[in-house]
């Protein structure tokens, strides 16, 4: 049996959902409410002492790193292969995943999470200090502290914005050469990128459009047209499914 403990189909939380839908693998979805900081609750920490989402449990084995977990899913289950067999295409797939995990996703998460600072302003600071203490990883604690007390340095946010725009150019260049990130076939690199970039044109319309980034838009259209992508995002809350609907209209996949 496969159980997935995760938040919404968004960023790292979304990666196993998108991947499992693509493979056609049945799973039990345990919703972890990050708004209530459930990923730092004692019950969850017993499962994953790092207090990060997602966590997968397959026949007793606990998997807590989302990108290696996607490779695990691809290896352990039947269904369409999501990794190229050619060594160079496979390297390219993994390089895009590293780029997303260590470079782009942190920049986007820093920007995106600023929406949450307003919520924390209404909370009792002593209660927030207590919440911080239950975060096991020092890197995560530092991040949450900046977020909860609205202390993300403005130059760091500006740098993250610069990186996002540079990334769009990089994707546009790569996708001008080939239909998917690793090559001719849809792979875990596309799933990893889609989980985070699925609605990026909605927040950067001045930089991402059919005119300015036609190949990136075509790639988004190819990905959003996949039944598994639609099914995975349908698991999301109203905010996420609303953004996906808006994207599908923008891409002319629906009226």
């Amino acid at each position: 049996m496969l159980e997935v403990y995760t938040w919404q189909p968004n960023a790292n939380s979304g990666k196993p959902l998108l991947c499992l839908k693509e493979k056609g693998v049945e799973f039990v979805y345990h919703y972890i409410d990050m708004g209530k900081l459930e990923q730092h609750s004692p019950a969850y920490l017993r499962l994953n002492p790092n207090g990060t989402v997602p966590t997968l449990v397959h026949d007793g084995r606990v998997l807590t790193e989302s990108t290696p977990a996607m490779e695990y899913i691809d290896a352990a289950f039947e269904g369409p292969p999501l990794r190229p067999s050619d060594p160079y295409a496979l390297w390219r797939m993994r390089k895009w995943c590293r780029y997303m995990d260590l470079y782009l996703c942190p920049a986007l998460a820093m920007i995106g999470s600023q929406r949450a600072t307003a919520v924390f302003k209404e909370r009792d600071p002593r209660e927030l200090e207590g919440a911080l203490e239950s975060i096991p990883l020092p890197e995560r604690r530092r991040t949450w502290s900046m977020l909860m007390f609205d202390r993300t340095p403005s130059q760091e946010l500006a740098e993250s914005n610069r990186r996002v725009l540079a990334a769009v150019d990089l994707y546009e260049g790569a996708l001008a050469e080939q239909p998917y990130l690793a090559g001719n076939d849809y792979s875990l690199a596309d799933i990893n990128a889609m989980a985070t970039l699925y609605a990026l044109p909605l927040v950067r319309p001045e930089h991402i459009s059919e005119e300015k980034t036609p190949h990136f838009m075509d790639w988004l259209r190819r990905c959003h047209a996949r039944p598994a992508i639609k099914a995975a995002f349908a698991l999301g809350n109203e905010w996420i499914s609303g953004r996906v609907r808006e994207m599908r209209r923008l891409l002319r996949l629906e009226a």
Partner: peptide, 13 residues
């Protein structure tokens, strides 16, 4: 095995 390959990749990351 998928298990051990996962563990190897976690270390590489």
């Amino acid at each position: 095995t998928a298990d051990d390959a996962y563990r190897m990749q976690v270390w590489l990351k």
